[in-house]
Amino acid sequence: MDFFKEFALSFHPLSEDGIERIFNLLTIKKFPKGYELVSLNQTPVNAYILKTGVIRSYSVEKNKEHTKTIYTPISTSGNLGALIKNEPSTLVYECLTDCEVLECNYKDFYNLSLQHHEISIFHYKILQSVYIREEAKILELQMLDATQRYKKLQENYPGIDNLINQYHIASYLNITPVQLSRIRKNFIY
């Protein structure tokens, strides 16, 4: 409960009752490396709060994987667009390491937010943070070169090189593994 309370209060000052109502919807789950939280074309029903580990979302085009987002603790994960629209996912959400998450049925959470104003605001604040995170990623791809994007990744996720495969990092940066190798060779730690 302490972990969730800290997470929740970082978004919005919920009452103890509000925290407890949301917490009652959560299930603590552990998933092994390689587990798909959401598979391609699966209609997801759950959202996740990542407590430990690393998750990535990726798309597949012409049999090539393109990493969209890397999630590290403490963050939310899950295909929000597919959850909201109740549609099949165009992304895969995969555990890159063993992960511990808080799992929540999105419809149950949404219905709870309709009944309680403070939970509705909390929901809105989470949606805002997801939007801001995704907008920042788009701007980074447009405005920064590959070396700058790698440096920013290192700042945002210290030690990421030791946690996940280099080809996942290259895909996230929208470069080839060879380009990443060259950047890392010249990168001053």
Rank of each mutant, 00 (worst) to 15 (best):
K62T: 00
K51Q: 05
T67A: 03
L80K: 10
S59Y: 03
C99H: 03
L91C: 03
N86W: 14
T43S: 09
V54T: 07
V60R: 11
T72G: 01
T67N: 08
K51F: 08
K62H: 12
Q42E: 15
K85D: 12
V45L: 15
S77G: 10
E65Q: 14
K62F: 13
V101F: 06
E36F: 14
L96D: 07
N41G: 11
Q42R: 09
E103N: 05
R56K: 10
S89M: 09
V101E: 05
S75E: 15
T90P: 07
V92Y: 07
L83C: 10
T43E: 11
S39L: 06
K64V: 04
L40K: 12
S75L: 04
D98M: 06
S75G: 10
T72S: 01
C95L: 05
I70V: 11
I55P: 01
K85L: 13
T76H: 12
E65A: 10
Y48H: 05
L40T: 12
A47I: 12
K68M: 15
V54C: 03
P44M: 06
G34C: 00
T97K: 03
T43P: 01
S57A: 07
Y48D: 00
S89H: 07
K33N: 04
P73Q: 02
S39G: 11
P88E: 05
H66A: 04
T43C: 06
S57F: 09
R56S: 10
T43I: 12
R56P: 06
Y93A: 06
N41P: 08
I74N: 15
E103T: 11
T90M: 10
Y35G: 06
Q42F: 10
A82N: 01
L50C: 02
L80C: 09
A82Q: 07
E36K: 12
L91R: 02
S77M: 14
E94G: 04
K64G: 03
V45M: 13
E36M: 11
K85F: 14
P73E: 11
L80W: 15
G34P: 10
E65G: 02
V101Q: 01
L96I: 08
N79M: 02
L102N: 02
K51H: 00
L83S: 08
L91S: 02
C95G: 05
V60Q: 10
N63V: 09
S77T: 11
G53P: 01
L37D: 00
E61T: 14
G81D: 15
I49H: 04
Y48R: 07
E87W: 13
K62D: 09
G34Y: 12
K64C: 02
P44Q: 04
N46S: 13
H66Y: 15
S59G: 05
E61F: 15
L40E: 13
G34L: 11
V38Y: 01
L83A: 04
S89D: 10
Y35I: 05
C99D: 06
S59I: 01
I74Y: 15
G53H: 02
T76L: 13
P73T: 08
L50A: 02
E100P: 00
G53E: 02
V60E: 13
L102P: 06
T90N: 13
Y93L: 14
I70E: 04
N41V: 11
H66Q: 12
N41E: 14
